[in-house]
Write a protein that binds this DNA or RNA. Sequence first.
DNA 1: CCACAGTACCTGATACCGTCAGTCTCGTGA
DNA 2: TCACGAGACTGACGGTATCAGGTACTGTGG
Lengths: 254, 254
Amino acid sequence: MPAGPGPAADGTPEVDLRTPDGRSARWDEHRTQRRAALVHAARKAVHRHGPDVSMEEIAATAGTSKSIVYRYFQDKPGLQVAVGAAVVAQMHTALDEASRAAETPREGLRAMIDVYLAMVEHSPHVYYFVTRPLSEDAEAPLGHFLDAVANLIARPFTAVLTAGSRERVQADLWASGAVGFIRGTGEWWLSHREDDGAPTRLELTDRVTTWLLAGPVGFLTRTRQEASSHAEPPSTTETPCTTPTAHLNDEEQS
Amino acid sequence: MPAGPGPAADGTPEVDLRTPDGRSARWDEHRTQRRAALVHAARKAVHRHGPDVSMEEIAATAGTSKSIVYRYFQDKPGLQVAVGAAVVAQMHTALDEASRAAETPREGLRAMIDVYLAMVEHSPHVYYFVTRPLSEDAEAPLGHFLDAVANLIARPFTAVLTAGSRERVQADLWASGAVGFIRGTGEWWLSHREDDGAPTRLELTDRVTTWLLAGPVGFLTRTRQEASSHAEPPSTTETPCTTPTAHLNDEEQS
DNA sequence: CCACAGTACCTGATACCGTCAGTCTCGTGA
DNA sequence: TCACGAGACTGACGGTATCAGGTACTGTGG
């Protein structure tokens, strides 16, 4: 069906610009509108029925049938990334407001964490839908959504940075880790929120911000002492691998 | 179907202990052996065919048919957690050797990261199989595997700790974040390993260790300056929420 | 300038296919 | 008699195909 020349490969299936025919152009606005509406419906359906909604249910929520959904989205992962993009866009706008007031990178990071946790708290289903990898490859297109968030995080750091590849890579790497940290704590919090001693969202935000920027300072002074005393020299080639990483897999040999 | 009294809910489907019948007890050893063999076969199959193997393929790899697999494991998630447990067990033994030599928590953490990354590197398929949530609930049984790893990480810290719930929670929380950080960087590394400027696994290990314990020191001195100056007071109630977390979901109202 | 045929695209329903998780049935061997 | 094991079966779901409409644009002839 996609007779178009370009390999689009993202969610959008071949919009085919080369015809200035009014009969085609007439639908352009309608198309974008409809697509947005479908994304919205998908979010609603996921929010209601959990991250494992069937396409049929999504279509039903949108008041139509599968055919339509598949006309606008390549497949389920395609829909997933579209929803993810929408969520990221919302986070981005929310972040713009926040980072206008934020001077230091610390405030920027804090705002980021806050927005992230707010999303997690407000609609865990959508969060999981967007977060969970659906692709069978699972290697290259790891976490479209999480990658985007990592970029959001890395931006304030890389902005100050010369485009030298060495440090850029460092920033990206750290951002990936930071998103992972937030994700980990966020999901832990989601399922331990009711326990006694569990922090509120704001406490969590502050704590995670501090931990990310300064390490596990504050929650354990004793171990922290040792840790920080050893953490001073961050030379990358510290000691050769002393851990006997024992063969962790025994299932290859063809 | 599960006529057994206890809510097992782990991988084991009701072994039905209430019959001390010799005709039944005769099979006990065979059962545990078989179960281990099936887990092994599952790992092999996943390693070969990717994290989306069908149960049929797993059974075929084990040289049998689905019925058998379902006799020993409740369902696919059950098998998944069994495989995860096996991997965690291997990590645990690998870690025991390492942590015998490790005095400081830092060395313990470093060893942990090393083992984790080694696993990721050696068999990404198995890693994804074990890592990805398969349950539709997706909330309570979040990441059996990742939780176990988090416990592994938290142990050296909590060992020194009084059992006071307040600090235990802190340690657990931090451990979840740390695992998330390692996961994030690990998966980033998995798909950017070939880029120029990408670190080797050992460099990555050292860097992540340092970052986790002391924050992003070393890769950007300028921003780090600001960060650390603000990071000193880790009081949990720092400033009230200044970020305008904008309504991130618009899809509820029944 | 206007009617008309033809066209390009959208809609939504329904039926269909392939795959896969999970179950059931029945034969076999100790 | 008991567990084992193979294979047929069911149901759900992702995804495709077909079909009968519907509506606005394009071109051409009167």
